[in-house]
Write a protein that binds this DNA or RNA. Structure first.
Lengths: 149, 149
DNA sequence: TATGGCCTTGGAGTGCACTCCAGGCAACCC
DNA sequence: GGGTTGCCTGGAGTGCACTCCAAGGCCATA
């Protein structure tokens, strides 16, 4: 089950540890190396975007095949899942890059990561509250139009 | 008490009827005419943005003083409140302009307005669900970092 | 050997939602 | 009259997050 990429395992390469993130799209088991187009299929992002994420430092360096093509690991996909979630919160990409840098710097940044996620959590809560507020307005208007019809 | 703008009252000018929207920022009572900078203070939008909204048709024509300066009514402020709410949902400005057009066209567009708001409502619900999903992920990570500290 | 498919790169382009600028008018205070 | 403030306009500029382009490498199949 636990296929490990020999290329990355020796150097534990600081990654986003934490409990295993739930994977949304079924990923084939027993593999740990995907082409960019497979990742496109899993994530819904474009290949352009994936390469751009790498360029701006939102993803740490991705493995390459002997011909120089990108080979994404399950860890990379987990990270993309998290990025997708953070994107939904409206977090700017620059902030996500900051978080990625903290992850790359290793365990010494736990405190700062904790603070960053706490702040994000507060943002998310207030966005949910705003949306629920908006929902109330929509419901009032919808029932107005519903009654008028 | 009821200061009415003589210019708009004769022609009831189709506006967003429905029940009275709750006003967020305290507006002085007994007035129905505000300068652009007052509206800036009430809404948090910039004067540029307010003029731009008008240019693109997101606001119907705003009253003018004898010198040509904009004079916003309470109805305009109510509309801006709604626009603010819709903006929070992530609705594109173009869609809001569409809704504004429907409002300007009068009662015959009730059905379409109803449908548009229903669709928006569904969007909002799914966004809330996404955010709650994200919140769960954040909580897991936050408690991981919290435990590790 | 050639054709097609998948991938690579740096850099330029796009769409959205503002945001600002230059130049000018009107009103008010000293 | 001069200075300041507030507002006006059309049009250009900005920042973000992609999105696309052109030119080319590698490799499998016909």
């Amino acid at each position: 089950m636990q296929t490990t990429t020999a290329t990355t395992e020796p150097t534990p390469a600081p990654v986003d540890v934490c409990s295993a993130p739930p994977r949304r799209h079924p990923r084939p088991d027993g593999r740990d190396s995907y082409t960019i187009s497979e990742v496109v299929a899993f994530t819904g992002l474009t290949a352009h975007t994936l390469r751009w994420y790498e360029r701006i430092g939102l993803m740490s360096h991705i493995d390459r095949s002997h011909t120089g093509q990108r080979r994404y690991s399950n860890r990379d996909l987990d990270w993309l899942d998290l990025v997708g979630k953070l994107r939904l919160t409206g977090m700017p990409v620059a902030d996500m890059v900051r978080y990625a840098e903290l992850v790359r710097e290793g365990e010494t940044t736990y405190r700062e990561r904790h603070a960053l996620l706490e702040a994000t959590r507060r943002d998310v809560l207030s966005r949910i509250a705003e949306l629920q507020d908006t929902l109330a307005v929509l419901d009032r208007k919808i029932s107005f139009y519903g009654d008028a019809l």
